[in-house]
Write a protein that binds this DNA or RNA. Sequence first.
DNA 1: ATCTGACTAAATGAGTATGC
DNA 2: GCATACTCATTTAGTCAGAT
Length: 343
Amino acid sequence: MPFAETKVYFDGSHYIAIPHTTRPTKRRPYKIEETITVQEEVKDSTENVEPSISLENDTEDIKEITNLEEDTKEKVIEEEQPKKVRRTTKKELFNELYRKYIDLKKNERKKMIVKEMEAYFESKQQCIDFVNNNFERKQRNLICRRIRMVRKANLVNFNYFCTFTYDDKLHNEHTFKKKLKTTISHFAVRKNWKYMGVWERAPETKRLHFHGLFEIPENAMVGELFENSDYNLNTHRRTKTIQNTFFNKKFGRSDFEKINTKEDLNREISYIIKYIEKTEEKIVYSKGLYQYFISDILDEDVVSRIGLEDKKLLLFDDFKCFDEGEYIGKVSLDTINKMRKCN
DNA sequence: ATCTGACTAAATGAGTATGC
DNA sequence: GCATACTCATTTAGTCAGAT
């Protein structure tokens, strides 16, 4: 077999195989982060309540940190002020500030972070370098997440774009999030649903909801879908939506929009990408989403060599899939389902 | 049904190399 | 100087068994 056990992904229009390689260079061990001591303005009881989403406390937090900044200089390294002080690392502090100033333009954001972190460095230049490096790190990480998400999305067959939110009579934000998470992850295991999505807040109401792409296999739907005619307050029009009895009953409100075309899907994918880029929220993935499937590839199925140093193989649209030399079939979603997967 | 804690799969993060 | 892609390390978060 010319190319055994390649990793194959779909870029939206072509299949691309990556023959196995090993890393030529040695890795350096991760460096251990030096801890620093940060002065904390009194108690921060809000922090434990909802750690993942805390956009609305911004103004308060800014105040806290600016207070902190005035008198940090003398206690950069050693602490001993039981309550008001916490130990952290420069990187963690950077991450907090990076999130805090998420709405600023890049340069403004850098400036503010440098301003607030300068005290922990020997010179301003060192701080600037640190901040620049960490911006690069954040950017790289974001790109990684984006690529992974697109590859995963391209290897499944999403058929619904769903939105779930809750009724106050049934849930609070916390129970809603928790329950929905377990519900859909159960469906992933028990009914083979696949999904990827994000937690968001409606801009006006701040109400938490979940937006996601779902692959719901035939006969694996729960409840009943029904058409609902609604008056939309934003557009001042009656809009028809498809809702689901199971989710409505359990959470309050659901919306099942059928994905019919590739364009629909691409629009939704780029929506989610934009959203994670803007907010740094994480993507919620179901189990069973992979970036690659593993197949042996024949010479005759390779169109050309592409990518960095021509390491990747561009494949014909109907190339043949082999698992450990055993022919599985020409590529199709069906065939892919039978192949081994990896990330 | 819900919790707890050990286990582990999968996601994110990091380091490096390269391209445009 | 930013964007991309690859591999591998670390962290996070599902999962499952057992107890209540």
